[in-house]
């Protein structure tokens, strides 16, 4: 084992040249360096790989929907007729359905989630807040498809028999009194409709919004509360005046993240929205979101056909919508979660 210095490669720069080189030491040093280099770069490889996956996402979906993109151009997102038999593909009903259900879900979920976050982080004593917080978060552990099954068995009949008829009579009374029906609550009630889908979406995004709002409230410095309390404010007043105001950016971020989740939710919506390819004319109308379109119609034609490519283009539209929403939300939440911890090294 007589390996000369030349065989071990060039001297590392930090080895003093005057010292007679110990061959074993040299090999050892190089080995360490090479392994360090390899390790560092393999972690880099996987980190960049994540960016690559996201990039491939867009590329692959564009490649898969080349034909309808070239054929329909902007008419795809602007056209309101979806008629595969006539090769007319306008995705507006689904974009509309997605926006409508998500917006409605936010209307229901935001006040509830903020109430939960405020109660758990500001008003409740700790021994009550902690277990309640766990239980609320359990809602996030229920799979989407189970929500759908529950929606079919419990929520749909409940909405049809208990919630919707009074709303319809409001509509009837309005059309009787002021001769102007409220179009939101028009039409016959069958339970599987845009309204029910929105309610189920609201339930599903409550844990997201309340958990991140809680983080935002937790990030408010204690001095902020104490200042208000020391001036004689009640805990609600301290929350309203000094805490909510301080945390509003994070709360907006939480709401947008909830929106992002609602927009992409598939199974529960597919099972409750009623699945119709036209724009619903009231809350009791049947509709379709982009996600439910994919789940419902993907197998209606052979892979590679124009129909399936059009559905892939709809998925591309959905991806772009959620990317925009999530980038916006993360930019708002980022500073809050990230800013606190300093660099490790």
């Amino acid at each position: 084992m007589s390996v000369g210095p030349s065989a071990a490669g060039p001297d590392p720069p930090d080895a003093p040249p005057s010292e007679p080189a110990n061959p074993f030491r040299l090999i050892f040093r190089h080995r360490v360096r090479i392994l360090d280099f390899l390790f560092r770069n393999s972690t880099l490889f996987f980190a960049v790989g994540i960016l690559a996956i996201l990039g491939t996402f867009v590329l692959v979906l564009v490649e898969g929907s080349k034909e309808p993109i070239l054929r329909y151009g902007l008419n795809f997102v602007a056209g309101s007729t979806w008629s595969p038999n006539q090769a007319i593909f306008g995705a507006l009903p689904f974009i509309f359905g997605t926006v409508m259900t998500s917006a409605l879900a936010l209307v229901f979920a935001v006040p509830l989630s903020l109430g939960i976050a405020i109660f758990l982080s500001e008003l409740a004593p700790k021994w009550i807040a902690e277990p309640l917080g766990y239980i609320v978060e359990l809602l996030a552990a229920v799979p989407s498809v189970v929500f759908g099954l529950w929606g079919l068995a419990v929520l749909v009949p409940f909405m049809r028999d208990t919630v919707d008829p009074p709303l319809r009579s409001v509509n009837a009374a309005a059309s009787h009194a002021i001769h102007y029906p409220i179009p939101l609550f028009a039409g016959s009630v069958i339970g599987q409709d845009v309204f029910t889908a929105s309610v189920i979406l609201a339930i599903m995004i409550i844990p997201t919004i309340s958990a991140i709002s809680r983080e935002a409230l937790r990030a408010v410095p204690a001095a902020q509360r104490e200042a208000a309390l020391s001036l004689g404010a009640t805990s609600w007043e301290a929350t309203r005046i000094s805490v909510l105001n301080y945390a509003r950016v994070g709360i907006v971020g939480a709401i947008i993240l909830g929106l992002g989740r609602a927009v992409g939710e598939t199974m529960a919506v597919t099972m409750t929205i009623g699945n119709s390819d036209s724009i619903p004319n009231s809350l009791f109308g049947q509709g379709q979101t982009i996600a439910s379109l994919i789940a419902n119609e993907f197998f209606n034609d052979t892979p590679g056909s124009l129909y399936v490519s059009a559905i892939i283009e709809a998925a591309l539209v959905l991806l772009i919508i959620t990317l925009v929403i999530n980038i916006g939300a993360r930019l708002l939440v980022w500073r809050l979660v990230k800013g606190a911890g300093g660099p490790v090294e």
Partner: peptide
């Protein structure tokens, strides 16, 4: 940042992405 953004991408879109990738 983009890892966080990816967490929010809808699972059905991930499904259609993998489908298209394997199809291609």
């Amino acid at each position: 940042f983009f890892t966080d953004v990816m967490t929010g991408s809808p699972s059905i879109v991930v499904g259609i992405f993998v489908y298209t990738l394997f199809f291609l």
